[in-house]
Design a binder for these strands. Sequence first.
RNA 1: GCCGCGUUCGUCUAGGGGUCCAGGACGCCGCCCUUUCACGGCGGUAGCACGGGUUCGAAUCCCGUACGCGGUACCA
Length: 556
Amino acid sequence: MNSSIRVRFAPSPTGLLHIGGLRTALYNYLFARKQGGTFVLRIEDTDRSRYVEEAEQDILDSLAWAGLHPDEGPVVISQGKKSSDVEATGGDGKNISRLEYESEATGDRSYAGTYGPYHQSARKDRYQRYAQQLVDDGYAYLAFDTVEEIEAMRERLRTPENPTPKYDSITRSEMRNSLTLPQEEVANLLEQGVESVIRLKIPIEETVRFDDLVRGPVSFETDGLDDQVLVKADGMPTYHLANVVDDHEMAISHVIRGEEWLSSAPKHMLLYRYLGWEPPEMAHLPLIMSPGGGKLSKRKAEEEGIPVNVRDYRSGHYERDAVVNFLALLGWSPGEDREVLTLEEMEEEFSLDRVGKSGAIFDFKKLLWFNEHYMRERRDEDLAKELSVLILDSGLPEKTAGEMSDNTEWSGGTLSGEQSALVKDPLFMTGVIRLLKERVSRLPDFLEAGHFFFEAPVEYDEKATKKGWKEDTPERVKKYRDRIAGLEESAFQADRLKQILTEVIEEEGVGFGKLMMPLRVAVTGSGSGPDLFASLELLGQREVLRRLDAAIERLG
RNA sequence: GCCGCGUUCGUCUAGGGGUCCAGGACGCCGCCCUUUCACGGCGGUAGCACGGGUUCGAAUCCCGUACGCGGUACCA
């Protein structure tokens, strides 16, 4: 255990956890585990207008699902699905939170942390205090401008070369702030309760440099920075202040976050300096891009058929190991020709200097490949159980093989008595899994590929019928049907069924396909599928005979 | 516009001056296996953005160009 290494994942509860957010969390987690450090979860809920009620629980559930358990973080009272910080046990300055965490995915967990509260909304006073200190020290100032006034300033100064004028060392001189207003007036405005914000006073003509752990040395001219608002009119801090204060107070040693923060990093460095603190190490991760280019946004991703919310992967029954493995490799490489890694292995291998610098496009097909890989490693019995639950919850898809898509309607749990019995039969379900496991990418796909196991064909694939069902077919199918009808129930087994088919085609003097294809169409409705004889065995004698009779009747 | 960051097969990447006419994985294509399909096995296709340097030698170092991405809020 290296107590000096502390990292944090600090999502904002403004929506469901994004898949890119999960990767950031993953890298933080892996770094902490590898270094023997501490992985902290902090909720950055300073924007009250964008707060989404269910978001926080979603973040917790998603992290738990992925196996990224924070060592420190907010309390979750699972029953009420509501989270909040538990009051300090009496200490002043730092709260001591008793952390409990429970998730359906992982069962009970307990965490403890001594750097709470872990909600920024509960730390408001601290930010205020430091902001005031900055003002007192001359590193920040009060600004009374309304949003309209600021917009008017930008409007006035806007030119083609400078489309968005900044509130900076130049423009602040003509705005209404504690730098331009007489002292009495400032006091007066404050007295009257006029709304104000606190802005960082960016120095002029200075170069801010720092070494980024993934990008190397980077530098920014302060002249390109604006006087960032540190405390908003509602008294809440902006990300910039809160993030610096918390990272310091929580003794964060390494800030590992997305590249979208790189541009504001110099402001953060300035804040550390003005507050008299040692800045943490910085590591800015490359962004995850959509196949069409640009940051993987919700809209873009969905256009490409890529789910963006971690919740979608959970509800879509993706293998969590597959998602985690895939995400880890989106920007990081272990440096050897090995790509299939468990979380535990990655905890051993991870290092920031093997993180790439350029954006990585989300390759959905590769994710599917990982999913297939991990799914096939699982025990048939376990998959069967999960599939049963899925069907019992959601029902069967309305459409048959080859037609299922994202828009497929599900029957919503209404099953016939017969179907329900099948779904609850572990032996039958395991059989379905065994036959289909090598042919599907995701758990729900079993229901597309194996629809016929649960329901007799409603219609027969046109192409397969046209190709394989000729005039003399019914007669041959009937012959086969009668042979297998004579079988003892216990003899209704794959090898016997195949043997009988061999006998029939020999008697008929035709090739294998002349009977095999019609049988498949009759029983499954499709021209392709899993091993036919094993499928017949699994379906059972009665059902097979019923389907053969129906096909002979309907297809003539 | 400005500021910052980036650029090796379609995609994720290995590669840190010679061992690279660039390796692996996914995808794609072909063959084998299988009287379906799939899995699997084997093989193939395809890349150092461009231009200048530095050097005996550059995918690797430097500069420039192009392109891409991010930022440019009282959002994170």
